[in-house]
Design a binder for these strands. Structure first.
Length: 467
RNA sequence: GUCUCCUUCGUCUAGAGGCCUAGGACACAGCCCUUUCACGGCUGCAACACGGGUUCGACUCCCGUAGGAGACGCCA
């Protein structure tokens, strides 16, 4: 494939949607796979709804995900060019001024709805300016063919054909002189040399309109690939009511970019039975043949699974770096080292970076409260037994996990009890709940003094007044 | 309503006419491992929407039906 040029063209009228992220990723992969160019184009022609915050968010998310682009454009900077094309089409008789007022069109639309027929602009102004044209600011509409059919050979959807009778003379330039999306995309894609348009299949029907513009301008039509949308668990287009939909939300929820990308890739695309696919492998394998045509539902369980996999497989020091923004307190060097020492077993238990950060703080600093289940190990028997175990080991030189465990086993046997009784009581003291990495590992890492302090705190806990 | 698209376990999917007694992954259940929780290992549960063709043979090809989704803006 020579000189592939693709683009990701989000509009900053809302926060960057997770579905858009997948579109961006597929574009990026296709460019990388073919050694082509990837363009980021912010489509902000709707000035009323576009915001700088959302634009910034797009850049931030792309950076977070590592989706680098070769060029970046802000569409509104190109408005003059868009206008120029519209004007030229009018001069060539391929587009025309329409003086119909919005009220007039609203009325016709309402009428069509009442009659139960589908509304299409009636082309009133197509063959010349009507007598009573008093609208000061007309729009420019394209002259769509009245007969025949338009077809595309989509890389994902296959051959799709639509009767031109379905098309109406849509607006290219608004009455305030600004271009519509339909015009802007086509002009920009052409000017930027875009060879492949990869986007959500909600744009499929727009394609037939956009092709009319290409034809009117006499330009080459790009290759299209319309990928299915991501649905929510109820099978409809993923939206806010389904939960988190913006890319930053997932970042804040503690998902790793590589995990999110891996998950999104497998949603609708496959490579045999492969589930964990690195970005490098994805670049090598990606193609549109293996993109399914049917929409996929977003499944948080699977994302969680993939995320925990990537967390487990990230090196400890690297993981610590990623974790820093999730810590809810300052960490001094001493405690940082404790966390690093415990990272191997901590990361095995985490689903998100949020979980991991929380568990790490607990590990290094100890509990600030105890869960209800700790009451069970807060009776005289457990406290005495565990207290004696701590006394039993206090004089020992080897304060390491293995030795502590061995001594606990011996101690339990001597006192005719089970290891689990001591371990769980210790666990309550050390982290305030019944699930954690090995208590003996924690003891080794935080040291004898901290262990005794945590145990005393636990002993002094007034567990029974909590209820 | 009109147009377009879709339909394999609950979910993501493998499947290019015989390899299918339909495979994998997530989720779920059970067992093993085990100081808890996880991890890991094993086992189980669970699907070709329906009806017609074509064919010696159909999850795979064709046609219908049903269901679902998307698009129908001076939004993108």
């Amino acid at each position: 494939m020579e000189n592939v040029v693709v683009r990701f063209a989000p509009s900053p009228t809302g926060v960057l949607h997770i579905g858009s992220v997948r579109t961006a990723f597929f574009n990026w992969l296709y460019a990388k796979h073919n050694g082509g160019k990837f363009i980021l184009r912010v489509e902000d022609t709707d000035k009323m709804r576009s915001t700088d915050e959302n634009t910034q968010l797009i850049f931030d998310v792309m950076k977070w995900l590592g989706l680098s682009y070769d060029e970046v454009f802000i569409q509104s900077a190109r408005i003059e060019r868009h206008k120029e094309v519209a004007q030229k089409l009018v001069e060539e008789g391929k587009a025309y001024y329409c003086y119909c007022t919005q009220e007039e069109l609203e009325q016709k639309k309402a009428q069509a709805l009442e009659d139960g027929v589908s509304y299409k602009y009636d082309r009133k102004c197509r063959d010349g300016v009507p007598e009573n044209a008093d609208s000061a600011d007309p729009v420019i509409r394209i002259k769509c063919p009245l007969e025949g059919a338009t077809s595309v050979n989509d890389l994902v959807q296959g051959e799709v054909q639509v009767d031109n009778g379905q098309l109406d003379d849509f607006v290219l330039l608004r009455s305030d002189g600004t271009p519509t999306y339909m015009l802007s995309v086509v002009v920009d894609d052409h000017d930027m040399g875009v060879t492949h348009v990869v986007r959500g299949d909600d744009h499929l029907t727009n394609t037939f309109r956009q092709i009319q513009i290409y034809r009117a301008c006499g330009w080459d039509i790009p290759v299209y690939a319309h990928i299915p949308l991501i649905y929510g668990d109820d099978g409809t287009k993923l939206s806010k009511r389904h939960g988190a939909v913006s890319a930053v939300e997932y970042q804040n929820l503690g998902y790793l970019p590589e995990a999110l990308l891996n998950y999104l890739l497998r949603l609708g695309w496959s490579h045999g039975n492969d589930e964990i696919i690195s970005v490098e492998q994805a670049i090598e394998w990606f193609n549109f043949d293996n993109v399914g045509k049917s929409p996929a539902r977003f499944d948080l369980n699977k994302l969680n699974n993939v995320n925990s996999h990537y967390i487990r497989n990230t090196a400890n020091d690297e993981l610590y770096l990623r974790l820093e923004s999730f810590f809810e307190r300052e960490i001094d060097d001493e405690h940082k080292n404790i966390i690093l020492a415990g990272m191997r077993s901590l990361k095995e238990r985490a689903v998100t970076l949020v979980d991991l950060a929380e568990a790490a703080i607990l590990y290094a600093y100890g509990p600030t409260q105890y869960t209800e289940e700790c009451i069970k190990y807060h009776d005289e028997e457990h406290l005495t037994l565990t207290g004696e175990y701590l006394k039993y080991i206090s004089g020992n030189e080897n304060y390491d996990e293995e030795a502590l465990l061995m001594m606990a086993r011996t101690f339990a046997k001597e006192h005719d009890t089970k290891l689990v009784e001591i371990a769980q009581c210790l666990r309550c003291a050390l982290v305030g709940k019944l699930a954690s990495p090995s208590v003996f590992e924690i003891m080794q890492n935080i040291g004898c003094t901290a262990v005794e302090k945590r145990f005393n705190d636990y002993r002094n806990w007034d567990g029974y007044s909590r209820n």
